[in-house]
């Protein structure tokens, strides 16, 4: 897709040194460095936004907005304070929160209110009908029912493997609060996820 400004191979991990070089190139006016940064962080940032908003269009919008903001304010990024990935996550989370506030009613599913079976996400109606019994769809629907702050904590912990210190940094809260949010999310999700068949879980764990 995009060429790598430094000519190094790209890895999905947050390679701090490579990222620092890319940022330096971008700040120096190298346009391809922006593309390389996007290539490196877009998949995880989009996944974060999608997991929080559970809507493809909104997730794409917020991903775009976050990159535009980050690239315009690249000089403000301080590598001594945080990793580029967590800085990007902080920007994205703030925009996702604006999105919850704007579209809160859309995040509530009518089936939740009526106590019916878990519905599929509104942006994926066709495939969700077929995948209703799938563990992924079940988790997605379960996350939809979580309070936004608990959902953020769970997604950052399990979706992106952030430590509690990093979660606290991204969510702008004390580390103990981040830990207690994960614990509360565990309690809330237990009833929603345990019905998923053990064989299906084993299958997922094997892949």
């Amino acid at each position: 897709m995009m060429t790598n400004a430094t000519g190094t191979s790209q890895t999905p991990q947050d390679g701090g040194t490579d990222s620092a070089a890319l940022i330096a190139h971008a700040l120096g006016g190298d346009q391809t460095a922006y593309g390389a940064l996007y290539d490196r962080y877009a998949p995880s940032l989009y996944r974060l936004c999608y997991s929080l908003l559970l809507n493809r269009e909104d997730a794409e919008d917020v991903t775009q907005e976050s990159f535009v903001y980050a690239f315009r304010n690249l000089r403000r990024f301080d590598a001594g304070k945080s990793a580029f990935k967590t800085w990007m996550f902080t920007i994205a989370i703030s925009r996702c929160r604006n999105q919850y506030r704007r579209f809160m009613p859309q995040l509530l599913d009518i089936s939740d209110l009526l106590g019916l079976a878990i519905a599929a996400p509104r942006s994926e109606q066709p495939e969700a009908a077929a995948a209703r019994s799938d563990a992924k769809a079940t988790v997605e629907a379960a996350l939809r029912r979580l309070q936004p702050r608990l959902r953020e904590a769970v997604v950052l912990r399990y979706g992106h493997g952030l430590t509690y210190r990093e979660i606290a940094e991204v969510m702008n809260c004390p580390q103990k609060t981040a830990e207690s949010r994960v614990r509360l999310a565990h309690d809330a999700l237990r009833g929603l996820l345990l019905p998923v068949g053990e064989s299906l879980l084993e299958e997922l764990l094997a892949t």
């Binding site: 996944r47 936004c49 997730a59 988790v139 997604v155 399990y158 979706g159 565990h186 996820l193």
Partner: peptide, 18 residues
């Protein structure tokens, strides 16, 4: 109980949005 739910979340949450 926490360990069990954590195990499930580790297996499923990374799939969302992929």
């Amino acid at each position: 109980a926490q360990r069990e739910i954590a195990r499930r979340l580790e297996a499923t949450v990374p799939l969302i949005g992929r």
